[in-house]
Amino acid sequence: MNDIALPSPEPLDTSTMAGKTFGFVAMGTNDIFPGIADGATEALESVGAELKYVESESSPDSAAQALRTMVNQGVSAILMGAYESDLVKSAAIEAEQAGIPLISTLTGSTEPVLANGQVGTVNSSAKDTGKAQADYALAKTNCELNGIMVFTSVGVTTALHNDGFKEEVAELCPDCKVESIDVDNSNPSSVVGQISTAIQRDPSINALMASWDGWVPFEVQAAKAVGYDLVKENPSDQELMILGAVGSDSTVEFAMQNGVAMSTLPPPSELVGWYSADALMRAVSGATPPITYAFSEKIVDDSNWGSAPLDPSVYPTLPDYQEVFKTAWGQ
């Protein structure tokens, strides 16, 4: 299973951070943003700074308005959750004109948009996660993959994952087949019918992939609807493998209990919060862009996910990371 090595922070003088306020504007809601906010809050409080956190609605206009509010409140730097500066260009330019640097997270790209005041990113690579999932699928099907990938084009992270998966399969197994289904994000359950129709059209389909674990329950439902059994390797007639990605405790528990073959796990959200706080402070300190922290996700399956509740040791981590950061910050 893939080994994970997380980056260690370089030394940073945080003696001027006391009294500063930083912002975190997340576009939409999920179970990851609050953990990032908690981690960043704890990290910034350790140097005498604070974090203002707000979740906007899932639209660029709402995120832009929240960004402007942070700018008007005079924060020192802003973390953008699930979007880059080019998606909220006019608001980002206002931040840049006010001398407020921007950092992105949860966009799926480790190559930040270095424009409109954005100077860095704290991210897992969605493309690399897609490639890792593809490697797993090819290995477990003996390079006889005929699969369906579920993603949504309105979610940049899932679109990048889809691209990475298909690129890897095309390179390593040109004879393998992958059909991508672009989910209507406003009606995710519709994918059940789309998958069922695809399997009826091609009964040799042997794997269902999700670019995000939130779609795995619908894939399980679709497999049951067409009467296929779930297996974890070497699927034969009327058998399917289901492969998830970008999981959490709850989604991996579902996978464990419902015959899903694998998923991936990002670093704990609180740890991402500490990296994010570090990046924000480096931006304020005038570090040369890009300020980048890039992660890989951990593949989890029967070999290492243990039993519910999920063993925290499965996650990639940086041992005693709070002390690692505090030492780098001269505490």
Rank of each mutant, 00 (worst) to 15 (best):
F295S: 06
M281Y: 13
S186Q: 14
D311C: 08
F295M: 02
D38H: 12
L243P: 01
L102T: 11
V169K: 02
F151K: 09
K20W: 00
S236G: 12
L271D: 10
W274A: 13
Y228A: 13
G48N: 06
Y228I: 03
S190R: 10
S248V: 11
P9H: 11
T41D: 14
G117L: 04
A91D: 08
E144R: 10
S196H: 03
I299Q: 08
P101Q: 15
R201Y: 06
E144L: 10
D128V: 12
P267L: 10
K224I: 07
P174R: 11
D311V: 04
I36Y: 15
G19L: 13
V150Y: 04
A170D: 11
F151I: 06
D128N: 06
L243Y: 03
D128P: 00
A225C: 04
A26P: 04
A18H: 00
G39K: 14
G48Q: 02
D184P: 00
V156K: 09
A137C: 05
P188S: 11
G35W: 08
V75L: 11
G48M: 07
V88Q: 05
Y53C: 14
S190N: 12
S296V: 07
W274H: 09
A126T: 01
A132K: 10
T110P: 00
A287C: 12
G23A: 14
T158R: 05
V47H: 03
G273P: 08
K177Y: 00
P188K: 12
A159R: 10
D213W: 00
V71E: 09
S189G: 12
P174L: 15
S46Y: 12
A95E: 04
I4P: 01
N123D: 14
E57W: 00
S59I: 01
L102Y: 08
A139R: 08
Q118A: 10
T107Y: 08
H161I: 07
Q322S: 03
W329M: 12
G147W: 02
A64H: 02
E94A: 13
D249P: 00
E239Q: 15
G117Q: 04
A49I: 13
T251K: 02
S285W: 08
N258G: 12
G306T: 06
F325H: 09
W215F: 07
V150K: 01
M70Y: 03
G247K: 01
D302F: 06
S90Y: 07
Y321Q: 08
S307E: 14
S124G: 11
M209D: 02
P60F: 05
K224Q: 14
M80N: 08
V252Q: 02
G130I: 09
N146E: 09
A308V: 15
V119C: 05
V113E: 03
L265A: 12
E96P: 00
D229T: 11
T16E: 13
V54A: 09
T29A: 06
V47Y: 03
Y136A: 11
S76Q: 14
I205W: 04
